[in-house]
Design a protein around this nucleic acid. Sequence first.
DNA 1: GGAGAATACTACACATGTTAATTAAATCCC
DNA 2: GGGATTTAATTAACATGTGTAGTATTCTCC
Lengths: 159, 159
Amino acid sequence: MATSTDSPTSPTAAIRSFDKSLPMALLRTREAAMQHFRPLLAEHDLTEQQWRVLRALNAASEPIDVGALVDATSLLAPSLTRILAKLEDDGAITRTTHPDDQRRSVIALSPTGVRLVAKVAPQSEATYAMIEKSFGTRRLQSLIAELHELAEALSPEES
Amino acid sequence: MATSTDSPTSPTAAIRSFDKSLPMALLRTREAAMQHFRPLLAEHDLTEQQWRVLRALNAASEPIDVGALVDATSLLAPSLTRILAKLEDDGAITRTTHPDDQRRSVIALSPTGVRLVAKVAPQSEATYAMIEKSFGTRRLQSLIAELHELAEALSPEES
DNA sequence: GGAGAATACTACACATGTTAATTAAATCCC
DNA sequence: GGGATTTAATTAACATGTGTAGTATTCTCC
C-alpha cells in the first residue's frame, strides 16, 4: 500500500480522492446553493445564465458592452449573444451602438428589466438570509473572500 | 441614499452586489480552476462530465449503480444515461445487472477505463501541485473543507 | 397475485458550450 | 489616402447538458 488515506480497495491509489477534488467541491456546493435559488428563477421564467446577465447589468453603474459582459458573467460570447437576443426580445434590455466605436454594442437594463430585477431581488435576499443563518454570516463572507482570492490566483495575469 | 456601499448610480440598491453572490463566486472560481484542467481533458478526448463519472467510479471501492452515480457526480439521470452509453461504447466502463435487483444497472471501470484514469491522473496531480503552490496547501484544504460543510448545510437532510 | 413504489431508460423541447468562420468597423503603417 | 491587420460581435454548426414527462421492468408489501 503506497497510501494510507485512500480506500483500501481503490483501483488506482495515485489519484486524489474524489472528495478532495477542488472542481468537484465547487460544483457540489454550487449545486446545493442553486437548489435554493432555482425555484425562484423558474417562477420568473429565467434561466441561471439570463439571471447572471441581468445581475451583471444591474451591478454595473453604467451600460456596458458585450465584451465586458462576457468577463462579468463567465459566459462565452456566442452563448451571450443568444441570451442577449432573448432578453432583448423579452424587453428586459436595450442595446445601442457605442458612439465612439460602432463595432461595440452597448447593453443596459430597460425599465422592464429593472423592474424584473427588483421583483426577484427580495426573494433572492431572503434565500441568502436563510443561507447565512444556517452557515454563519461572517463565515460565509470569509468563504466568498477566499474564493475570490483563489480565483484571482488561478487566473492568468492581465499584462 | 439608503445604502452606502453600493455604487452610487446602481439602478436598484436593494440587491446584493454581484461580487458577493455566492453562486457567482463558486462559478468564477470553478471556471478559473477548470481552465487549468480542460487542456488535459481535451488531450484525452474527455468532457468534464465524462471525467467526473470516471473519477467517481475510480473513487468507489466497489461497482456502483446509476443512482449512486447520479449522487456522486451531480448529474441528472438522463444526462448520465447518455454519458454512460458513450463511455460503454468507448470501452471505458462495464455494466452488469445487479444480482439481487434486476432493475439496477451496476457500473464499473473496465481495464481500459482504469488505464485511462491512470494516464490522466498524474497530469491532474501536477496541476493540483501548481494550484497548491500558488495558493497554499493548507489554505486550499481548509477552503475545500468549508465548501463541503456549506454544501452539507444547504442540502436537504436525508431523513 | 395484484397494487403501488422504485430504477433506469427514452423522448422531447429548450438552452448552453465550443470551435470555426464571418461581417463590420477601427487601427496601423506605408 | 488606402491596403493589411486587428478587434468586436455575430453567425453557423454541432455536441452536450438541463429538465420534464412518460414508459418498461422489477421489486416490495399487503
